[in-house]
Nucleic acid binder design. Structure first.
Lengths: 194, 194
DNA sequence: ATGCTAACCAAGCAAGCGCTAGTGTTAATT
DNA sequence: AATTAACACTAGCGCTTGCTTGGTTAGCAT
C-alpha cells in the first residue's frame, strides 16, 4: 500500500463493508459476503486489509470522521444563538445517521466489537465529537432553553437520536430535518429564546 | 418436557443465557459458553432447548413478559394524573432495563436475530407493551405536559431510555429512579399539571 | 424388582469461519 | 525489453460452530 491508505478502491470497499455491517451486523458479515459484494474472491480481500478487524476499524474511522466534519460545518454555518446551534447539531447528527448512512451507524452500533488497539486509535475522534455536543448542550442549558443535568441531557438526547436508526424509514414521509425539528420542539421550553 | 415449559431448571438456564447475551451479544455467545456457565456439557443443552434460536426466543419472551407486568403494576399503583402515570411508566421501563436486568435488554437489542417464526410468536407481547406507552404519552400530550407529534415523541422517549443501557453504571451514583426523574424533567413543560 | 423419565455425558460430524501460501495477470515505469 | 507493483485467483489449512447420536445415571412410582 502506498501510504496504508487513501486508495480510491479502498474507499469503495469500505463503503460496501459499511452497508453490510449495518444490514447484517459485524459478526454475521463474513469475509466471503464482503468479497462477493465487491466482485472479488475472499482471498483477495486481504490484499487491501490486514484482517477483518481492520475493515471494521476503517469503517468506523470513516463514520466518525464524516460525523465530525458535518457537525463542524453545521455549527460554522449556524447563527450564534444557542437554539440555532442546537438545531444545527441535531440536524447534522441525523443526517449522517439516516442519509449519509452506514458508516456512522456502524461507529455507534459496532463500537464494542473493536479490539483494544483499534479502540485506542479511534477514541480521540469520539471524544472530539462528544465535546461538540457538550458545548452545544451546555449553551442551551445556560440560555434556559432546556432543563436538566448537563450530562444526563446529553446522553438522553443522543440516545433518542441514535435509536432513530431502529425505526426510521427512508421511504416514509418524514425527512431527517423534520425529525430534528420534532426533537428540538420536544425538549425546548422557551422557543422565543431560539 | 412436561409442558414444553415451566421447569424451574429451565428458568434458571434462561437467566444465565440472558446474562451472556447481554455481555457478549447473541452471535458471540456459543452453546459451549452457555453450557459452561450452567455447569453442564454443551450437548446437554439440547435436552432443554431444541436449538440456540429457541433459547433466544425464551429469553426475549421472559424479558417482554417482565416489562409488561411491571409496567401494568406501576400504572395501577400510580395516581391518575397524566404526569404521575408518565413518571411511573418511565421508572418501570428503566427498572426492567437497569436492575431486573438482562432479559429485557436482550429483547430490545437482539430482536432482529429472531427468525420469522419466533418473531410472530412474540410480536403481540411487543405490541401490548407499545400500546401502554402510546396511551400514557397521548394522555400527557393532551394534558399539555409535553409537546410534539405523538408517534415521534414516543419513539424519542423510548430511544432515550433504551440507550441508557449503553452508558449506565450500576456502581455509579445515579439510581434508575433518579434517571427517570431527569428524563421527565427534561421533556415536561408544565410541571404544575403533574 | 421393575419400568419410566428427566438430566446428563462422551464423542464427534458437517459446515462454515478467518486467513494464508503460492501463482498468475495487467499496466505503468525504467 | 526488463522490472516492478498492484491486484486478483486457486486451493486449502486449522479451527470453531451448532447440533446429533448413543448411552449412562439417579430418583420415583408402581
Amino acid at each position: 500500500m502506498t501510504l496504508v491508505n487513501a486508495s480510491s478502491r479502498r474507499k469503495e470497499l469500505i463503503r460496501i463493508a459499511a452497508r453490510l455491517f449495518v444490514v447484517e451486523g459485524f459478526d454475521r458479515t463474513t469475509v466471503r459476503m464482503m468479497a462477493q459484494e465487491m466482485g472479488i474472491k475472499s482471498g483477495s480481500l486481504f490484499h487491501h486489509f490486514r484482517d477483518k478487524q481492520e475493515i471494521l476499524c476503517a469503517v468506523i474511522e470513516e463514520g466518525m470522521h464524516n460525523a465530525l466534519a458535518l457537525a463542524r460545518l453545521a455549527l460554522d454555518e449556524a447563527s450564534a444563538t444557542p437554539g440555532a446551534r442546537l438545531d444545527a447539531m441535531v440536524r447534522a447528527h441525523l443526517e449522517t445517521l439516516l442519509t449519509d448512512r452506514n458508516a456512522h451507524v456502524v461507529a455507534l452500533y459496532e463500537w464494542r466489537r473493536l479490539d483494544n488497539e483499534s479502540r485506542s486509535h479511534l477514541v480521540h475522534l469520539r471524544d472530539a465529537y462528544e465535546a461538540l455536543w457538550k458545548q452545544v448542550i451546555d449553551e442551551a442549558l445556560d440560555a434556559g432553553l432546556i432543563r436538566g443535568d448537563p450530562l444526563s441531557v446529553r446522553r438522553f438526547v443522543l440516545g433518542a437520536l441514535n435509536w432513530t436508526v431502529r425505526w426510521y424509514d427512508p421511504e416514509g414521509p418524514r425527512s431527517p430535518e423534520s425529525l430534528a425539528r420534532e426533537l428540538v420542539t420536544m425538549i425546548t421550553h422557551n422557543p422565543s429564546a431560539s
